[in-house]
Design a protein around this nucleic acid. Sequence first.
DNA 1: TGAAACGTCAACCAAATGGTTGAATATCGA
DNA 2: TCGATATTCAACCATTTGGTTGACGTTTCA
Lengths: 112, 112
Amino acid sequence: MTPSLDIVFAALADPTRRTILAMLLEDDMAVTDVAHPFEMSLAAVSKHLGVLTAAGLISQEKRGRVKWCKLEPDALREASVWMQGFGQFEPVNLDAFERFLQSEIEGGTERS
Amino acid sequence: MTPSLDIVFAALADPTRRTILAMLLEDDMAVTDVAHPFEMSLAAVSKHLGVLTAAGLISQEKRGRVKWCKLEPDALREASVWMQGFGQFEPVNLDAFERFLQSEIEGGTERS
DNA sequence: TGAAACGTCAACCAAATGGTTGAATATCGA
DNA sequence: TCGATATTCAACCATTTGGTTGACGTTTCA
């Protein structure tokens, strides 16, 4: 079940979380290492990672006592498609655009 | 000064606001008309429009007693560029776009 | 075995968010 | 001028968000 656009965009709206995503672009990281550059508690970063996980933007896998965080960039695809629609489609085709989104996006259980 | 990614993504995180943007894709609208399909007060919709304006996603121009709302899709560019930094997505999802065009051709124009 | 490292949980707090209602402001039209 | 229309403002409320701290469960390893 793909997380809704609500959850994905809300996850992206925080600068700490966007920085974390950029960090994970380079390599997978343990929670403690993700937290290191930030001037906030480990628990706070752990919460941010929870938000990113709920949005499907990262995945977390525990090996031993270390929990590894991995970027899942595919989760950005749905949001990206949604945004691109505003640049690429003619205003005339709203109905068609909406049908397109409907067919393109799975699991979007949002109210209209 | 372009609004920060924080503000833009936060604005996009609400389904009511995304629906408003989709409505404005079709045409400019007055505040009252924007509010019409929603089951909430006019004041609430007015607040949403304020959030979208603060994010630069729409502009509002008052003519007479009517305030017209206009989509400003360029505001999505910065956010779009940020997301594209994560690779995977081309600026346009060409495959999906071609399928969309194909369905357009096959389906004919069934807008009423 | 036991201390240290890794990470989360629970309770708490301040501020922001999304909604309400009622009053206020400004403009149009007859 | 007066009533209706269009929109915002102000105060209020409940919920969510982003942060804190301290206690807790696991896992490692000397």
